Simulated scan of single mutants.
Amino acid sequence: MLCDDSSTVRSALARLLETDPGIRIVARVGDGAQALAALDRAAPPDRAQVVLLDLEMPVMDGMTALPLILQREPRPVVIVASALTQRGAGATMAALRAGASDYIPKPGASAGALADPHFRGELLAKVKGWARLGQKPAARPAVMPAPAARPSVPRVRTGLRAVVPTVVCIGSSTGGPQALAALIRRLPRQPAVPMLVVQHMPRGFTAMLAQHLDTLGGPPVSEAREGDVLEAGRIFVAPGDRHLLTRAEGEQVLLRLSEAPPENFCRPAVDPTLRSLVATFGHSVQAVILTGMGQDGLAGCQLVARAEGQVWAQDEASSVVWGMPGAVARAGLAAEQGTPESLGDALAKLCGRRA
């Protein structure tokens, strides 16, 4: 279901979605009240599994409609459409806290915006990935190795080493905000090591993401700033449109923000952060790669493994898109695979005690 007060935006999204034969548009509505009515009158074959929901609409806006949509059975997945503004970022994080699964940047009506292959890829991946996850039960087992029956994935190393890393880097993209929240909820308030988060997000959104993650009861979370001291017990989020790096100065390690060109079509990207961490800390780096399109993080994880650090990855069953973690797993680099929750529990066990 497409719910947006702009008929232009509804038509643009429909054209992009209908290029995939696995997606069917079952309704196009202009406000939240119409969305609720459409859900209530639809027979099961035509009931929306995924609702793309604008937040700013007349009659009934998206934030008002969101909890009411999520009360419907069977419960649809809601992906909110957000303007790329500071206000839009704040509204997006509020929607994620209220139960939305993900967000997409609201497309412009220009031909260039609609023809952007990255936007189209993200849109299709989120709609199909969340639809797949929405059909599965929420409960999943603890950390587990990749199934041996999947011949395309090499046998992975299993078993946690009882070695506390000096620093942890968590990389994520498509589906990442909810995966990060699930993982960080499981961490102690003051872990023995600092952690860096690199989430593919535009400028402005990462500050709101950090604020959102900071409310979950885990370690303090903030958006990284140039010159911040890398301190144990804190999580630093790479700011949008900047790579996050480290440099040693005396006995301290400081954070650096870089405007170097995008890598893997992303800035921030996971690979430059992992390169920098390996150069600074050597073998004592822990990398955790969560759901996301593409293979950002693969090259960095290869360096981590070569330096005898540890690499973990989200499993395929719980990933919205098993691109980034799948690339790491297929390369045989992932010592552990699991859900964000189980990886969070493992990190809490590993990093919750002092070195």
Score class of each variant (00 low, 15 high):
M1K: 14
C3W: 05
T8N: 14
V9K: 10
R15K: 15
R15E: 12
G22M: 04
V29K: 09
V29W: 06
G30A: 14
A35K: 01
A42F: 02
P44F: 05
P45C: 06
R47M: 10
Q49A: 08
V50E: 09
M57D: 10
D61P: 07
M63G: 04
T64D: 12
L70P: 05
R75Y: 00
I79E: 11
I79M: 07
V80Q: 10
Q86Y: 09
G88V: 01
G90M: 04
A98E: 13
A100D: 00
G108C: 07
A111D: 14
A115S: 15
D116W: 09
P117T: 06
F119D: 11
L123Q: 05
L133A: 02
G134Q: 04
Q135S: 14
A138V: 00
A139L: 12
A146Q: 09
P154A: 08
R155G: 04
T158P: 02
G159I: 02
L160N: 10
T166E: 15
V167T: 13
S172N: 05
T174A: 05
A179K: 00
Q199L: 06
H200P: 01
H212E: 13
T215K: 11
G227T: 07
E231T: 15
R234Y: 08
T246P: 05
G250K: 09
L257R: 08
S258H: 04
C266I: 01
A269W: 10
D271P: 12
L274T: 08
S276Y: 03
L277I: 10
Q286M: 15
G294P: 08
A299K: 14
L303H: 05
V304Q: 10
A305P: 05
R306Q: 14
A307I: 02
E308D: 05
Q310H: 11
W312V: 00
S318Q: 06
S319F: 06
W322M: 01
G326S: 11
A327S: 14
V328I: 14
A329D: 07
L333Q: 12
G338V: 05
P340C: 04
A346G: 05
A348D: 03
K349C: 08
L350D: 00
R353L: 12
A355Y: 06
A355L: 09
